[in-house]
Design a protein around this nucleic acid. Structure first.
Lengths: 159, 159
DNA sequence: TTTGATGCAAAGACTTTGCATGCTT
DNA sequence: AAGCATGCAAAGTCTTTGCATCAAA
């Protein structure tokens, strides 16, 4: 799992991906890799500055873009619901980011727009059920090479 | 198919969904239902005004929200790539909208961020392959009710 | 030392909102 | 006639960019 990531490993990881290792990048990557919810740039920035980390919002954006370009993170579909939630937070808007590599399944709350990982075992069952044959057929018919899947279950709390 | 939608049908459809039938709403819905790519609000607005339809961008947004709330359209995950394409268009940014009801599969170009429907037959094969059992297991374990799936194949043109 | 990252602030894009006016029902 | 939709413009977010400064390699 990517959860436990201490300094030396991180600096190696960055080096392997051609990224300089700075305090800010370590902080952003660490914060991203540690959660299984999928924060927006703004949420990450608040989270980090609340913990005493000083860094500018622009740097969070730049860092996230660097991480995505180098393959250490991915940008997910953004838009949650349009309206601010009861606490006044506009929690749904803005792109969300994810440091988990490889295909996995997300679940989005239809009410709050929050995005989470489906626990690995369950998500894997889902992915395993997809026949490669169908994917190949789609690739062939449309003349494309499928790079990865993005699967989202939109769900409400059970009644 | 929803493609062929003329006036009287549209006014009935709106009425059934509790929406007033105005020139602008007909235009927006018609434009949305007619394509299988998934335009942003801005793209729709440009498309409509280019065809001589006069309407404000705010109305396009308001109309799309009304359509979504009444169940005639859905908002899709927005974010394509961050950078404007070669023609200077920032084609990827902004929410995309879809007038097709029910689950279906999208394909997104990893380069341009453009979103399209996977042709119905192929998409259906994909969806049919998902075992209900796994979905029920997820619902049970997480205590949720899955409303719908959002599946996106991120792909590049075949080499 | 060289090169790339950061911070700040400003610019830009996307989206929502308030209010007067007009149109559907 | 009543009430909702429209248009406009203004305000609010979210995101990117330019440039001077600073830090990693």
């Amino acid at each position: 799992m990517t959860g436990k990531m201490d300094q030396p490993e991180l600096s190696e990881l960055f080096a392997r991906h051609g990224l300089r290792c700075t305090r800010q990048r370590k902080a952003v990557y660490h914060a991203l890799a540690r959660t299984c919810d999928h924060p927006t740039a703004g949420q990450l920035h608040r989270q980090l500055t609340d913990r005493g980390q000083s860094m500018s919002l622009a740097t969070v954006y730049n860092t996230l873009e660097a991480l995505c370009k180098s393959g250490l993170a991915q940008r997910l579909s953004g838009n949650g619901p349009l309206t601010p939630d009861s606490t006044g937070n506009t929690s749904g808007s803005g792109s969300r980011y994810d440091a988990t590599l490889g295909d996995h399944v997300h679940i989005r709350c239809a009410c709050t727009g929050k995005l989470h990982d489906v626990p690995h075992g369950l998500g894997q069952k889902f992915l395993d059920a997809i026949p490669k044959r169908v994917l190949e057929e789609i690739e062939h018919d449309l003349g494309v090479k499928v790079d990865h899947l993005q699967i989202e279950l939109v769900a409400k709390p059970a009644q």
